[in-house]
Amino acid sequence: MDNIFLYVVIALVALILLSSFVTVQQGTIGVTTIFGKYNRILFPGLNFKIPLIEKVFKRISIQNRSVELEFQAITVDQANVYFKAMLLYSVLNQEEETLKNVAFKFMDERSFMQALIRTIEGSIRGFVATKRQSEVLGLRKDITEHVKEQIDNGLEQWGFHLQDLQMNDITFDDAIMRSMAQVVASNNLKAAAENEGQALLITKTKAAEADGNAIKIAAEAERQAAQLRGQGVALFREEVAKGMTMAAKEMQQANLDTSVILFSMWVEGIKHFSENSKGNVIFLDGSSEGMEKSMKQLMSLNQLMEVKQQQPAK
Rank of each mutant, 00 (worst) to 15 (best):
T33M: 06
L200Q: 15
L262H: 04
V184G: 07
L256F: 03
Q253S: 11
H146M: 03
Q25R: 13
I34E: 10
D108N: 11
K141N: 09
N255T: 10
Q231E: 13
V67C: 10
S90N: 12
V233E: 11
D2V: 12
K105L: 09
F83H: 01
Q224E: 14
I270H: 09
A225C: 02
Q150V: 10
L18Y: 04
N64G: 03
F172L: 13
V147W: 01
V240L: 11
I120F: 02
R118Y: 03
E238D: 14
S186L: 04
L46D: 04
M107P: 06
D164P: 01
I143S: 02
M295G: 01
Q231H: 12
K293D: 09
I50M: 15
A191K: 11
Q78I: 03
A218H: 00
E70K: 08
F57I: 01
Q182C: 04
Q303F: 14
M291L: 14
N213G: 01
F172G: 08
V91Q: 06
I60C: 02
L139T: 02
N302F: 00
K314V: 09
K131Q: 15
G126H: 07
F43M: 11
N280F: 12
D108I: 04
S66Q: 14
L155T: 00
L92I: 04
G269Q: 14
Q63D: 14
G154D: 15
V9R: 11
E121R: 05
L99Q: 04
S294P: 05
G279P: 01
Q163Y: 10
E239T: 13
V91R: 08
F106Q: 02
Q253T: 06
V8H: 11
G269V: 02
I151Y: 01
G154P: 04
F172S: 11
V260T: 12
Q224R: 12
Q310L: 15
N255M: 07
G243V: 06
V22W: 01
N101C: 10
S66D: 13
F160K: 04
L284C: 02
T258H: 02
S111R: 09
V91F: 10
L116K: 06
A199V: 13
R40H: 07
R223M: 05
F263V: 03
K278F: 02
L52Y: 13
L235C: 05
A73C: 08
D77E: 08
Q25C: 00
D169P: 05
N195Y: 09
T144R: 02
K216C: 00
T130W: 06
V128M: 12
Q150S: 14
E306D: 15
N153W: 15
Q224W: 06
F21C: 06
D164S: 13
I16E: 07
L52H: 07
D173L: 06
M107H: 09
Q72L: 06
I170T: 03
F57N: 03
Q163L: 15
G230L: 14
M113E: 11
L88C: 12
R118D: 07
V31N: 04
R178D: 13
E292C: 15
N255K: 15
A73H: 00
F106W: 05
M244S: 06
K249W: 08
T144W: 00
F71I: 07
A241K: 13
I41K: 11
N255Q: 15
L87D: 07
R223W: 01
K293R: 14
I217C: 00
I10K: 10
V102L: 05
I60V: 12
A218M: 00
F21M: 09
